[in-house]
Amino acid sequence: MTARLTYAFDAYCGWCYGFGPALREFAAGNADRIALRVLSGGLFSGPRALPTSAYPHIPGANQRIAALTGVTFGEGYRRALNEGSTVMDSTAAATALIALRRQAPDRALELAGALQRAWYVDGRSLSDVAVHRSIAAGHGLDADAVADEFLAPATRREAESEFREARGLGVDAYPTLLLHTPTGTHRLGGPVSTAAALTEGLDRHLAPTE
């Protein structure tokens, strides 16, 4: 039996960046028995789409994330954070993921990670179409097609629809990993869970009941 999972994340969510390595390891280790969908959330959308300087808690949060998950924040990102003018627009980031995965639907988790590395390592704005061209080229995708999709109003509307879907699933924090079963939808693990812990949780939910 293939288990259906939804990963609700935001490309501008530091905890999602920290969770990424464990989730990718979990997904690779269980590829034969899970179907994983990546759903973007609107953490910094609408009136919350503001420059990084509007969120002074970020550096402290990053220290906790690094300490608890082991991820490294890049020098380019630290420069962008210190400069403070980059607007974190989750709608643009979600639009970019849709544009990228349109060509490679089965690589959505990989492409979500690429978006996060562009920001959290290189400090590049996810509102910049040139960033998405670069990601596309680096992953063997058609950069022109990705750019066209990213700039299309319909793609942005699709991103906003994903935000509503995430809220409809009860997602109120990121990252959230949901397991869909005949008995309902269950949260699996948390932002500091290891791949092994996620697998153990999956095993428990999928174990036959007597």
Rank of each mutant, 00 (worst) to 15 (best):
136 A>S: 13
40 S>E: 07
164 R>K: 10
97 L>F: 07
20 G>Q: 13
110 E>H: 14
144 D>W: 04
124 R>D: 05
92 A>M: 03
65 I>H: 02
193 S>M: 10
64 R>F: 05
205 H>S: 12
8 A>G: 07
182 P>R: 13
146 V>C: 01
5 L>R: 01
117 R>D: 14
57 H>R: 10
60 G>H: 10
12 Y>H: 13
158 E>R: 06
136 A>N: 06
119 W>K: 01
119 W>G: 01
135 I>T: 09
158 E>L: 10
115 L>S: 10
14 G>S: 15
28 A>I: 10
67 A>Y: 02
30 N>C: 14
164 R>M: 12
62 N>W: 06
175 P>I: 06
41 G>L: 04
50 L>F: 12
145 A>L: 12
3 A>Y: 06
16 C>D: 08
197 A>P: 01
151 L>Q: 14
148 D>E: 15
103 Q>Y: 07
87 V>Q: 03
78 R>T: 06
184 G>Y: 08
186 H>D: 05
164 R>L: 15
35 A>K: 05
108 A>E: 15
200 E>P: 01
199 T>V: 12
40 S>A: 15
168 G>W: 01
47 P>K: 09
12 Y>T: 00
3 A>I: 07
209 T>R: 14
33 R>A: 12
171 V>T: 13
91 T>F: 02
136 A>P: 03
164 R>I: 08
194 T>W: 05
65 I>V: 15
93 A>C: 11
94 A>S: 14
53 S>I: 15
11 A>E: 00
13 C>N: 03
202 L>E: 00
44 F>I: 02
94 A>Y: 02
11 A>L: 03
66 A>T: 15
75 E>Q: 13
4 R>H: 14
202 L>W: 00
120 Y>R: 08
178 L>M: 08
156 R>L: 08
62 N>K: 03
71 V>M: 08
80 A>M: 08
78 R>E: 11
191 P>W: 04
116 Q>E: 15
193 S>G: 06
209 T>M: 11
6 T>M: 01
152 A>P: 01
182 P>I: 13
44 F>W: 11
126 L>W: 05
49 A>N: 04
31 A>I: 11
98 I>W: 01
170 G>I: 06
121 V>F: 08
36 L>H: 04
195 A>M: 13
106 D>N: 12
26 F>N: 05
102 R>S: 14
121 V>A: 15
68 L>A: 14
56 P>A: 13
6 T>L: 07
44 F>C: 02
108 A>P: 03
134 S>Q: 14
104 A>Q: 04
23 L>Y: 05
3 A>F: 02
99 A>H: 07
170 G>H: 07
109 L>F: 05
63 Q>I: 13
151 L>K: 12
156 R>K: 14
188 L>C: 13
163 F>I: 02
21 P>N: 10
121 V>L: 13
44 F>P: 00
24 R>P: 02
132 H>S: 05
203 D>L: 10
147 A>R: 04
36 L>K: 01
99 A>L: 07
112 A>P: 04
21 P>M: 15
121 V>H: 10
187 R>S: 09
203 D>V: 11
59 P>L: 07
